[in-house]
Amino acid sequence: MSSVVALFGRTGRISLNGLHTVCRVCLLVVSTIDWILVRPLRGQGLRVRSTILHLVEFGAHSFPVVGLVCFLVGAIMAMQASYQLSRFGAQQFIADLVSVAAMRELAPLMTAVLVTGRCGSAIAAEIGSMKVAEEIDALEVMGIHPIRFLVAPKFLAMLIAVPALTVLATFVMIAGGYLLATAVVGIDPGLYLERTASALQMKDFSTGLVKSVFFALVICWVGVYRGFQVEGGAEGVGRMTTSSVVTSIFWIVVVDMMFTVFFYFL
């Protein structure tokens, strides 16, 4: 009997906690949108300088690692494709496979995962350590809204940086595939480019871009949410930083899945 009660109690607590989290995330989302879209119209301006600084950090400084990884992934894909397609003598289709997969799927996904590791964790750690040091409280007492001061610039910067990085990553990934296919597999460069151009459609491009926008939202909100969740000292900051990366990658994959299914039937 008592185990049944315990089971119900546990289920209830888990659902209440879940509901609580949903409410808090919604509150964060609404508040961010308020400070980005509504308040600036009423004269409470955005922090442009901070946004630009974050854009440089999230975008320009992430490019080397994103570029390198995506180049290699492109090359790997071409290699794997060649391994399979050569059995059918269909090696010229490497171009189709690499370009479509890069544009629709892998470039947005790899970019999002790398930006999560580089910047999502940094957002969580920054806000978390500010919370521990009472800096967030200090902002509030000064009448400076933490969402406006800390979150809005990061959010805008992320919303620009991730799609921009994704576009660049797509090109670099295709270039990686091109280099490997022409230099190692020995496909004619002209033929490869021709096949790439004919394989890609506008729809592929927009699919990748839409995904990347939603990935940006996930990275920023998860980082910020985890940052504000920090309690206690340095240990709490560490735990929530780790958790932000895991949660963020999980939701990126979930969102990716949803969009892939959606665009498959579209």
Partner: peptide
């Protein structure tokens, strides 16, 4: 509240200066 807070100052235990 923001309007009232502009007329308040607070000095925190750890000073809480923005480290950045």
């Amino acid at each position: 509240r923001t309007a009232v807070r502009k007329r308040m100052g607070m000095c925190f235990q750890g000073a809480a200066l923005l480290n950045s």
